[in-house]
Design a protein around this nucleic acid. Structure first.
Lengths: 111, 111
DNA sequence: TTATTATATGCCAATATGGGAATATATCAA
DNA sequence: TTGATATATTCCCATATTGGCATATAATAA
């Protein structure tokens, strides 16, 4: 078998920077495809293709308005990623930073 | 051009469930390749290949010990993912949950 | 109807998988 | 040295992209 499809799950969907960038833009509110095209500087088909992937995994929702299509973020779909990564949070935050600071202080005192 | 390599960055590296599973196992401490093979139920080459990808992006570190190789997690490498996802955290936690609870309460009172 | 605008889809070429099996490399034992 | 163990790499194959370009579809305007 080959690599899993980008539409397999949210983890695969957010692997591409362009798709993450779209989510980042939508975080500020709804945008039409053309507005996304302008802000991303990509060709329209490429933007539509990315939106298709994001829609398949539920990361964005659509609202039809005449011939325009307004996309908006569905942040909740990112929760599985957040839940997974949260287990590792402790490996770089407070506790360990505090330990680093302590070790640094002790190191300084030795001079 | 084709799809970006899995070794391009951490986002691509963690897109595959098998690689995430390896990280999860290593979260409990160092493991040799064979120990991982046993726990994962995968063929040895497949495990080595995944470890190779994880090593390329800095997610695991190796310690040589005779003919064994002990891999351990380098959780800090996950920070970019955490930093990115954190921006969306508010979309499903406290504030929104609190709003949900409130709406639910109001709904209950109507009975 | 015809033209125009907004968006989606199809086709093509190049490429990076990921699984299985075989094999290479390294270390240790007898 | 020879054999066995631990791990990495290579080869083959089927597949899923991704970009660019052309085109189809839908809605609206003239």
């Amino acid at each position: 078998m080959a690599r899993a499809a980008t539409t397999t799950d949210v983890f695969n969907a957010i692997a591409e920077p362009g798709r993450r960038q779209i989510l980042d833009l939508l975080a500020n509110g709804e945008l039409s495809v053309n507005e996304l095209v302008e802000q991303l500087g990509l060709a329209q088909p490429q933007v539509s293709k990315r939106l298709h992937v994001l829609r398949e995994v539920g990361l964005v929702l659509v609202r039809d308005d005449g011939r325009q299509r307004h996309y908006r973020l569905n942040g909740r779909a990112l929760k599985p990623v957040h839940d997974w990564i949260r287990r590792y949070e402790q490996m770089w935050n407070d506790r360990f930073d505090a330990l680093d600071d302590l070790l640094e202080e002790l190191d300084d005192q030795e001079d």
